[in-house]
Design a protein around this nucleic acid. Structure first.
Length: 397
DNA sequence: GATTGCGGGCGCA
DNA sequence: TGCGCCCGCAATC
């Protein structure tokens, strides 16, 4: 199935960019050991890419991916194979106030996933639907991990044909908040304060009130460090000790993968920053009045405290013509997300491939809501961001 | 409770 | 034989 195309793409990836560096296949009996450059850990590997990580890289050690990847038995104990589970979407195809879609992270465990699909959309209370990944010849994208000596070889086969789900940390945060919602009674002082603020601002507080509900605020900072560049483990690829000539990590995105915006930006976009700044008055996170076609919006358990994570940029270029079974949805999703509501300015650096789409989305956001979509309030622009946020965030880089 | 890794087993091409 | 997938188990978080 599409074997030929796969091979071509792999050839392109492997030979044209790094020469001998990636002229290997995960199934090779012998993998290169003369690695001079190792890669930053890629949180969103996509397409037919290969990476060589340091065996010291914690994320690589744990075979992390922000895609929801489940273990697949390939009957080869030397090569760990994982296949993509896709993304959980709202069956109502609802949008948040600022036009973002619901892209939940599928539970990895089968039972948990079934249980998850019985739950309702956190935004409109509609049914959830699993949008499975078919980016590899109609089958899920597969990732392969292989530990060889001081390196961890990674190979991805297939291009995700669905939006990015929320990251693991985001999913955990969402669960924490949902737990918090049930833990707090309506008369809870914290909830009361949230409602007060809401009544004052017309929008949910994000940076002040939400942390009160979060059980693990540190997780957000962790999330910010999950991305390659900021990851401690990635910043310290400790390979020089043995080779004498340290194989410095290649730049993210150089290998033709998603080259995504650093995770911190997404995390910050989620209102995950510590409450150091003033509240961002954008529709950054919560949805007070979900503009969805829910059967009965009042079914929402706690409409005022629903946290609808922007989840991902969603703008993942897989919104290509073959965007899968949800043709119409994918159309609409093209205009999604981006920085428009993230309280975060665009990265001041050229973003590679994957990031390019973010840049593109941002440009669209800056242009306003022209083009597709056109739903009111979808692109709220950067006026919602405050300058403090801007200047406080960039030093993080 | 959820995630992760492992391995047995089955069906298909 | 390779691949995709299901299932169960154990360890871990």
């Amino acid at each position: 199935m599409l074997k030929g195309a796969d091979d071509v793409m792999e050839q392109e990836d492997s030979s044209s960019r790094h020469g001998e560096m990636t002229s290997w296949d995960i199934n090779d009996i012998k993998l290169p050991q003369d690695v001079r450059q190792i890669d930053w850990f890629q949180e969103w590997p996509d397409s037919y890419v290969k990476h060589i990580y340091s065996s010291e890289d914690k994320n690589a050690q744990r075979h992390h991916s922000s895609w929801a990847m489940r273990n697949t038995n390939n009957h080869n104990s030397r090569i760990l194979k994982k296949s993509c589970l896709g993304v959980v979407i709202c069956g109502n195809n609802c949008s948040t106030l600022d036009g973002r879609k619901i892209y939940l992270r599928p539970a990895i465990c089968d039972k948990a996933r079934q249980k998850q699909q019985r739950k309702c959309c956190p935004n409109c209370n509609g049914p959830l639907r699993l949008l499975s990944c078919r980016g590899h010849g109609g089958y899920p994208v597969t990732n392969f991990w292989r530990h060889e000596g001081q390196f961890i070889f990674f190979q991805s086969k297939g291009a995700h044909d669905h939006p990015r789900p929320e990251t693991k940390l985001e999913a955990e945060a969402r669960r924490s908040i949902q737990k918090s919602q049930t833990a707090f009674s309506p008369s809870s002082p914290k909830l009361k304060r949230i409602h007060e603020i809401k009544s004052l601002t017309g929008a949910m507080p994000t940076r002040e009130a939400l942390p009160l509900l979060l059980s693990k605020p540190d997780a957000y900072l962790l999330s910010a460090n999950f991305g390659g560049r900021l990851s401690k483990s990635s910043r310290e690829p400790m390979l020089g000790s043995s080779s004498g000539q340290p194989p410095y990590p290649r730049a993210a995105g150089e290998d033709g993968d998603s080259g995504e915006v650093p995770t911190w930006s997404r995390s910050l976009a989620l209102g995950k920053t510590p409450s150091t700044g003033r509240p961002c008055h954008g529709p950054a996170v919560p949805v007070a009045n979900p503009p969805c076609a829910a059967p009965d919006p009042q079914q929402c358990a706690h409409p005022g405290t629903q946290l609808v994570l922007p989840v991902t940029e969603g703008g993942h270029d897989p919104f290509r013509p073959n965007a899968g079974p949800l043709g119409d949805e994918s159309c609409e999703e093209k205009s999604l997300l981006g920085y428009s509501s993230s309280c975060l300015p665009p990265p001041p650096y050229p973003v590679p491939r994957g990031g390019g789409q973010h840049h593109h989305q941002l440009s669209a956001a800056l242009r306003g809501s022209q083009g597709d979509g056109g739903e009111g309030g979808r692109h709220m622009g950067l006026s919602y961001c405050n300058d403090d946020m801007f200047f406080n965030l960039y030093p993080l880089r």
